[in-house]
Design a protein around this nucleic acid. Sequence first.
DNA 1: AAAAAAT
Length: 738
Amino acid sequence: MSHVAVEHLHGLEQQLAVLDLSAADASGGGINRRYIPPHLRNSDPSKNGNAFAAGRQGGYTIAPTPTYGWDGGRNNFVNGYHDNCMMAGNSFSRGPPRMERVRGSIGGGFRGNRGGAFNPINAAQPMGFTAYENKDAGGWNTNKDAYTSFSNNRGKSAFYNDRGNTNRGRFDHGGFGGGGGGNSRWVEEVRDEGDWSKPTPRNERLEHELFSGSNTGINFEKYDDIPVEATGHNCPHHIESFQDVDMGEIIMGNIALTRYTRPTPVQKYAIPIVKSKRDLMACAQTGSGKTAAFLLPILSQIYTHGPGEALNAAKTSGQENGKFGRRKQFPISLVLAPTRELALQIYDEARKFSYRSRVRPCVVYGGADIGQQIRELERGCHLLVATPGRLVDMMERGKIGLDYCNYLVLDEADRMLDMGFEPQIRRIVEQDTMPHKGSRQTMMFSATFPKEIQILARDFLEDYIFLAVGRVGSTSENITQKVVWVEESDKRSFLLDLLSATVIPSEVQESSADNVEKPGKDSLTLVFVETKKGADALEDFLYREGYACTSIHGDRSQRDREEALSQFRSGKCPILVATAVAARGLDISNVKHVINFDLPSDIEEYVHRIGRTGRVGNLGLATSFFNDKNGNITKDLLDILVEAKQEVPSWLESLAYEHQHKSSNRGRSKRFSGGFGARDYRQTAAGGNAGGFGGRGGRNQAGHGGNRGFGGGGFSNFYTSDGYGGSYTHSTVDWWGN
DNA sequence: AAAAAAT
């Protein structure tokens, strides 16, 4: 783990010039002054080193961390209990309280808003903490007063105006709850009205459902290699263990149940940042543990503060005619994600961390029955995970109000912009009833930090901390990347050869007993193709060849997509043929081999794809079929291979050379356009990073921009964006001319 | 000449 304070501030001017966000700062109150990203604002670089960002010339990319799962708890569970330790660096004294907004109360009388039979509290469970004992970890520290320990000088902010909370607050667990039997409405009220910081009773069936999933192995030493850099005003100090920051007994209990042992680097930094109510812009990949990095502290805050106004709004929404639809829900937290599968994945995590709490997570996304989703919402929704389109739909139907959404997360923000979601996102965040920035807390996650994302950060975030998370130390060395020349007509037979070497045919697989781990489960192969038609055709072909395989792409029904994914994950179908839909974000562990049957035209897409493999201890293999159709990716691919110290076929080298001299811009990826020009390189290195990440040394390819300073550490993948006077060029025309 | 996402 490195926390690097970069000493110099060269390049700041260039950075600002690049951004040129001056007059466009409309959201800044109309003052026509140059926008300076908050984390760059400090005039004393020695205190707040941020040449890191400054030297980046407007954008860089972090290659993905492979999809590490969590340790199965086999080793070193460190802590049994909270130590009530507050971080010395926590900046609770920062500025005015964030949640200042006070909403007028809506409607009057109390009325239970959920007549449904859903009973979140298992009345049959005995109350009292004997039921909470967790022999593994003792994570439930029942004596902890999470609520008061975080009050500090912030006190109860006005936002969490305790209207309706006069009877919230410090109930003993016995005060409520015991009376739950039989009366679902009473139970519902208990769910909302009780002390949100106290765990509700156990539910063994649910507990088993949520936490019995296999925990996949992880090598923490590798994680510790991931360099992280935080810049910004009064950046809270990072934590080293989950016990270093008080997240309350519900969270700690669920951490124990998930058998998370130590925070990943992004969690070490993000958790205290979010807990101290700061906005966050994090460059990190799925698989770095970022889902938990925002869910844990957000949920912790919600447990600590209770539902506040959102509760009353939800209660009374059913009473207002017309204005609100019946039972409009007012989530306290919203997570936006680009793909349906990713949304589901985040939702699944949220269910774990909201176990035994009063928070009810929901997920909405397209392609699924909206009626069903609405019914789920109406049973209560405190944390909503959504894809943008369906959420807008829900808002327009009056099913969701964002008036009390204190926590906003944009996950895979770059991806969402790439997919054209910006209008919907702005519609959701800026043109509706969501609290303004500064009133809400906003967290953005993105693999890259191009200009578009910086603008979004400027518009959505307030005085944010910028977090740059590298990837596992030598990830690129964990993944063996092969590029083979295969003509189109030979691809299928070549694929069969490849598969026969690594995949067990389905008959063999069927024969193994159910209780034995299927051989296929450990050798999942992900085959990427470029088109949906191609995916269908190839799946068909493989099926006829006797392989248990399935496919996922955007034309398949949502049900089929989810089915395919689960069959793949479970090893029932150890081969998945996929289009770009599966390239990013999906946390599919155990992928041993990624095959680029068709290479993508965008190097970033390539990097994301191969990032699906490469788990520690399970060396990953990525094989790409290359032929003369792939000219556009030649140069970038070469750069990646060299950077990752992979074998480079000599024909690729000469092709790249030819290509470079043949034409100028064409075929260059937008993010990597200009590649690693010497100019870029010098500026990045001179920007203060040279030697900064020392690490294991050795990234010294001539002309390989921006990497030397980071040694062998994860930052070797923070590519600078260009060689064109420093501007991040994003063409509005894509490779197909659309 | 594409994929994704609301219907």
